[in-house]
Amino acid sequence: MKRSILHPLGAFLMLLASFSLFAADELMVTDPWMRAAPPNAPALALFMGLENHSSSDIILVEAKTTIPGARVELHRTVMADGMMKMAQQSEIKVASHQSVMLEPGSWHIMLIGPDHVPTAGEKVGVTLTLKSGVEQKFEAVVRKGKMMMNSGHGHHNH
C-alpha cells in the first residue's frame, strides 16, 4: 500500500527535477564577470550574456551572490535627458530565441553595500532565480573593467 503512494510521488518529483534541469539548460549564461572595483567601493556590477534557446520567454527575477552583505538588484543604465540614468528593474526578460547582454552602460546586476570587495582574479558564486522558480548557479570571474559602449552604443535592442 505504502509503495503505491510513494511511487507516483517519486515519479512526480523526478519529473519536476528533470524539468528544472531542462529549463535551466535553456538559459545559457555566457562570460559572466564582475568588474574589479576599489577596495572601498559601495557598489559593484556583474555582467554576462543571457541566451534563451527555448521556444518560450525566460524571465530573470532575482540574483544572489556569495559576496556577504550585499543587496542585489537588477538594473539598467539608459541615456535620457543628457544623463546616464540608473533604472532598477523588477525583472530581465529574455525572449524566446533571443539574448540580452548585461554589459557596462546597459543591463547589469548591481550589488549594494558589499562587506568584501573581491579583487581581480577572484571568483564569485552567482545564483539566478527565474520566474519559473528554477535556480541557476555558476561562477563569475572578477576582472578589470573594459570600456563602456566601445562597440557602439545602443546596438542591443531588446
Partner: peptide, 17 residues
C-alpha cells in the same frame, strides 16, 4: 559618485587608460 555601479567605473577606467 562612488555608489555609482556602472557609469563612473567605466569613465574612470577610460580616463586612467
Amino acid at each position: 559618485y562612488t555608489h555609482c555601479p556602472d557609469v563612473c567605473p567605466t569613465e574612470l577606467f577610460n580616463l586612467a587608460e
